[in-house]
Design a protein around this nucleic acid. Structure first.
Length: 216
DNA sequence: ATATCGATTATCT
DNA sequence: GATAATCGATATG
């Protein structure tokens, strides 16, 4: 099946997709499509790198300290956006997993742009001219959030299963190839767990492309 | 190509 | 007061 070149060919994922262990959601969400579809923004990009955060029993997860004002979306129903602000500079996007009362999420780490590349560049305030590395458009959690105009104020708690919300996740028949795993990036606790999932051949994958775990 | 560092603020100890 | 699920710039091999 050819790559998506229009939003009409993308079908939203249902809530049951997210109502599972974050490891399973992380693996299966690779190759799916993140869509921003509002009055003035029409973006789509393929999900090529994610990390699973396992909830209250995962020391690296924001949910580890329990339900707070910041992370309460993680403890709500599955399929909703958890957006947090980090390092005084950047927003990062997660989708809630599991079920109401049980935290768990998947962090989006890299996207491969399909639609609205010029708009993404404008959101990132970069030019597409010159020798600039094109993958910097959506490679990395902070970069992809900026490309999609995602902020906590606008998007935290948004329903990612509903096209009506303007930010949602769909599938277009793409079959993921070369899924690999590694340890998660940028964390200090539980560093050895292989909870980062990525498409090894995709140029937008951030950081190291080396797997620390067997092929899956 | 890898290393180091400053930015800048919400959140928690 | 310290830390953080990061990025971009600068320095150095």
């Amino acid at each position: 099946m050819p790559p998506s070149n229009n939003l009409a060919s993308i079908r939203p994922l249902d809530r049951a997709f997210f109502a599972r262990n974050p490891r399973r959601v992380a693996r299966e969400i690779l190759g799916k499509v993140l869509v921003r579809d509002t009055d003035n923004l029409h973006l789509a990009a393929r999900i090529v790198e994610v990390e699973a955060y396992l909830g209250q029993n995962d020391p690296a997860a924001h949910a580890a300290a329990g339900n707070t004002a910041r992370n309460s979306v993680l403890f709500g129903p599955p399929g909703y956006a958890y957006v947090y602000f980090i390092y005084g500079n950047h927003y990062c996007l997660n989708v809630s997993c599991e079920r109401e009362g049980k935290a768990g999420s998947v962090l989006f780490r890299a996207l491969d742009p399909l639609l609205g590349i010029a708009e993404m560049a404008a959101s990132r305030r970069v030019s597409l001219e010159g020798p600039r590395d094109f993958t910097k458009l959506t490679s990395g959690p902070g970069r992809l959030a900026e490309a999609f105009g995602i902020t906590r104020a606008r998007d935290n708690g948004r329903d990612l299963t509903s096209p009506d919300s303007g930010l949602w996740i769909g599938e277009d028949g793409f079959l993921s190839r070369g899924i690999r795993t590694s340890s998660r990036i940028g964390i200090r606790k539980a560093v050895d767990r292989p909870l980062r999932y990525f498409l090894a051949q995709n140029p937008f994958v951030s950081g190291g492309r080396k797997s620390t775990s067997p092929r899956i």
